[in-house]
């Protein structure tokens, strides 16, 4: 908590120019105005404490982690053993990181593309039943994904077949692409599950773009494809980036879907499953989990930092309805 004090002082003078403090009361208010910054950094510190604990403990051995609180760490006990162990020859962490990428990258890009089409369609193409279809689509956000896992797994294992009544002939609706136990099955599933939320989020944004923009483009003879490509996509970069970040995180950190779809196929396992198995029976190897957690979190953090710069004021100045 002592960290917050200097930061408050640091930030408050720059905060309000042109409002020179005079007299004790005003000076007190000057201090008060710094409080918001103080609160911000207070929250930030609180937020980082759990992670900090994890970080420190990732450099301590099993007895250290169990024996004393992480804030009592002494420099002499720091060790890279945990990291050594998870990168060890048998663990296959590198391969699993690649598997994670093979899941998360398509599972991020493809839903964004498809959902952006759909969001644009729902927002700016006038067709019959648009509202009803949109509501139906987005309502499916409420479905807990667990219900779809087994039917989907069955589809990936054997394709989808439908037996026509009366005729007793079976039609193959989805052929068996032999996807069971592959990362492809995982990202396909992610793509489907992400759709309602992606459409919800993107539609909310794309539909609030100013109407005159489209009318002007229309008059210039642009068709939907051109408008979408040249106008909507560039304007939607902030929301696309926001969704990309979340979708990447969710798919990168997903355990349930990967676990169901990949099952016993060790060579296709993403890091989440590998790490969960690293803990060992009865959590005997739990002391390597902090280190593994950090390795796991590293990639999404890089993605976040890379995309964060797109949330800047001005890209869509004047484009949000008022």
């Amino acid at each position: 908590m002592s960290i917050t004090a200097p930061l408050v002082n640091d930030a408050s003078p720059g905060g309000q120019p042109g409002d020179e403090p005079s007299g004790i009361i005003d000076r007190v208010y000057g201090f008060l105005r710094g409080i918001p910054t103080g609160i911000l950094w207070f929250i930030v510190v609180i937020w980082s404490i759990p992670t900090l604990g994890l970080f420190v403990n990732s450099f301590r051995n099993r007895d250290g982690q169990r024996g004393s609180g992480w804030w009592n760490v002494s420099p002499s006990e720091l060790t890279f053993d945990n990291y050594d162990q998870i990168f060890g020859a048998r663990s296959g962490l590198l391969r699993s990181l690649l598997n994670s990428a093979a899941i998360a990258i398509p599972a991020t890009i493809i839903p964004i593309a498809i959902a952006a089409f759909a969001a644009y369609g729902f927002a700016w193409i006038d067709f019959k039943g648009r509202k009803g279809l949109f509501i139906a689509t987005v309502s499916l956000l409420a479905i807990p994904l667990q219900v779809a896992l087994i039917p989907l797994l069955q589809m990936f294992v054997g394709g989808a077949k439908y037996t026509v009544p009366l005729l007793d002939k079976t039609i193959t609706i989805v052929p068996d692409f032999d996807l069971a136990g592959t990362t492809t099955a995982v990202w396909l599933t992610h793509t489907g599950f992400a759709m309602p939320f992606a459409i919800f989020l993107l539609h909310n944004y794309i539909s609030s773009l100013p109407k005159d923009l489209f009318e002007a483009a229309r008059i210039d003879g642009a068709n939907h494809f051109t408008i979408f490509w040249r106008l909507v996509l560039p304007l939607s970069i902030p929301v696309l980036a926001a969704f990309a970040i979340f979708q990447f995180l969710w798919t990168w950190n997903d355990y349930l879907i990967a676990n169901t779809m990949i099952g016993a196929n060790a060579s296709q396992q993403p890091t989440t499953i590998l790490i969960a198995n690293l803990a060992g029976d009865f959590g005997r190897n739990e002391h390597v989990l902090p280190a593994a957690g950090f390795v796991q979190a590293f990639v999404p953090l890089v993605v976040f930092f890379a995309l964060q710069r797109y949330f800047v004021r001005g890209i869509l100045a004047g484009s949000v309805k008022g």
Partner: peptide, 15 residues
């Protein structure tokens, strides 16, 4: 790590 649940899923899913 999640054998108890997974074996059910795998069997029901045909895999």
């Amino acid at each position: 790590a999640d054998w108890e649940a997974n074996i059910n899923t795998q069997v029901q899913g045909g895999n």
